[in-house]
Computed example of a mutant assay.
Amino acid sequence: MNNTVMDLSIFNLAIAYVFVLVLLFIFKARGIKREKLILIATTRMTIQLTIMGYILMYVFQNPSWWLTIIMLTIMISFAIYNVYKRVKSEMSKPLKQLVALSMVFGYLVTVGIFLFLVLRITPWFKPQYIIPISGMIIGNAMTGISLGANKLCSGMRDKRELIENSLMLGATPAAATRDIVNDAFDSAILPTMNNMLTMGIVSLPGMMTGQILSGTFPITAIKYQIGIMLAILGCTALTVVVFVTLGYKTFFSKKGTLE
């Protein structure tokens, strides 16, 4: 295969922004007031990706364990912050702490297994592997726990009377909230499962497409993509299951009553 990648000139890339103009026109024609959000999102995406591109160039050219750790810490910290912003209900301090704990735990377990047992990267901090792979894993876990947290908080709020009735009948907090916890976990995992169901037929994932464009043989790219998707599934499952199985407890007092 040809290992050269066709570069995009600034002019050619600028042409792609016509799609933003199309979106603005559609929203304007439909009378939907989203113009400001579209422009902010497009500008932020462009600036953030450009800055990240230069940062990654430096990190790739100067690989070191401490630079890699700084990058990973920033990524997971920003992901945790975004979970807080995405959850519509107000979360208590213990619940926010649990979000952070679950994200860090799920990521460390998943990336440890995937990098050291599946890819067997040497050295472990090789940035061109660990940073993009971690980005995909953390990003999907962030989406999963956001969905799970929203579902858990809304379920505890909307079914408060049902939970209290169950407690009065002698149910434990775990039994009284079992369906809510299961629904939260299911809601968090479902998008990843749906993505896996259509992958390869309806859509070609970004990592696989990028590898093919860079000259990698399709079969090699497919093997990497399968491994990544399994890691994403594992990290999302671990992150969410830790969160929901411990998260419901933050809604109860030490005596087992709803706060």
Rank of each mutant, 00 (worst) to 15 (best):
residue 120 R to W: 00
residue 161 E to Q: 14
residue 198 T to I: 15
residue 96 K to F: 08
residue 25 F to K: 08
residue 249 K to W: 05
residue 242 V to Y: 12
residue 90 E to K: 13
residue 164 E to W: 02
residue 78 F to Q: 11
residue 125 F to N: 03
residue 184 A to D: 01
residue 131 I to W: 01
residue 155 G to N: 02
residue 221 A to L: 04
residue 59 V to T: 13
residue 43 T to C: 14
residue 30 R to N: 14
residue 193 M to T: 14
residue 126 K to R: 12
residue 248 Y to H: 11
residue 257 T to V: 12
residue 173 P to S: 08
residue 75 M to G: 01
residue 59 V to M: 09
residue 121 I to M: 09
residue 184 A to H: 04
residue 244 V to I: 06
residue 214 S to W: 05
residue 185 F to V: 13
residue 138 I to Q: 03
residue 5 V to R: 13
residue 26 I to G: 07
residue 19 F to E: 00
residue 67 L to R: 00
residue 160 R to G: 03
residue 48 Q to I: 13
residue 59 V to L: 15
residue 139 G to F: 07
residue 11 F to V: 08
residue 143 T to V: 11
residue 35 E to F: 08
residue 225 Q to K: 12
residue 210 G to R: 07
residue 166 S to T: 05
residue 198 T to A: 14
residue 120 R to D: 06
residue 257 T to H: 12
residue 25 F to E: 07
residue 51 I to D: 07
residue 225 Q to H: 12
residue 104 V to Y: 05
residue 245 T to F: 13
residue 60 F to G: 05
residue 177 T to W: 05
residue 191 P to F: 04
residue 117 L to V: 10
residue 123 P to Q: 06
residue 115 L to N: 09
residue 170 G to S: 02
residue 16 A to T: 15
residue 258 L to S: 02
residue 62 N to Y: 04
residue 106 G to W: 03
residue 113 I to A: 13
residue 60 F to H: 07
residue 7 D to C: 00
residue 122 T to I: 05
residue 59 V to E: 06
residue 56 L to E: 00
residue 159 K to C: 09
residue 208 M to K: 10
residue 230 L to F: 15
residue 182 N to W: 10
residue 192 T to Q: 08
residue 198 T to Y: 08
residue 121 I to F: 01
residue 225 Q to W: 12
residue 10 I to S: 11
residue 46 T to R: 08
residue 190 L to D: 12
residue 219 I to K: 10
residue 197 L to I: 13
residue 182 N to Q: 13
residue 209 T to A: 15
residue 63 P to E: 07
residue 64 S to H: 09
residue 77 S to L: 10
residue 137 I to S: 02
residue 217 F to Q: 15
residue 55 I to P: 00
residue 75 M to R: 00
residue 45 M to C: 10
residue 253 S to I: 10
residue 195 N to E: 11
residue 231 A to P: 06
residue 76 I to L: 08
residue 71 M to L: 11
residue 21 L to P: 02
residue 124 W to N: 00
residue 247 G to E: 05
residue 70 I to M: 13
residue 127 P to A: 08
residue 243 F to Y: 15
residue 56 L to V: 01
residue 241 V to I: 15
residue 100 A to C: 07
residue 146 S to Q: 01
residue 53 G to W: 02
residue 47 I to K: 03
residue 131 I to M: 04
residue 125 F to I: 04
residue 97 Q to V: 08
residue 40 I to G: 02
residue 77 S to K: 09
residue 142 M to N: 10
residue 95 L to Q: 12
residue 76 I to Q: 04
residue 84 Y to H: 03
residue 43 T to H: 06
residue 57 M to F: 09
residue 223 K to R: 14
residue 22 V to F: 14
residue 181 V to M: 11
residue 93 K to F: 14
residue 178 R to H: 14
residue 102 S to E: 10
residue 177 T to R: 07
residue 220 T to Q: 14
residue 121 I to H: 00
residue 185 F to D: 05
residue 27 F to D: 06
residue 147 L to D: 02
residue 112 G to S: 15
residue 153 C to W: 00
residue 114 F to G: 09
residue 9 S to E: 04
residue 102 S to Y: 09
residue 206 G to A: 11
residue 107 Y to K: 05
residue 191 P to D: 07
residue 97 Q to Y: 14
residue 64 S to M: 05
residue 157 R to E: 06
residue 173 P to L: 09
residue 208 M to R: 09
residue 121 I to T: 15
residue 238 L to Y: 04
residue 177 T to G: 04
residue 258 L to D: 02
residue 117 L to R: 10
residue 47 I to W: 03
residue 99 V to N: 01
residue 208 M to V: 10
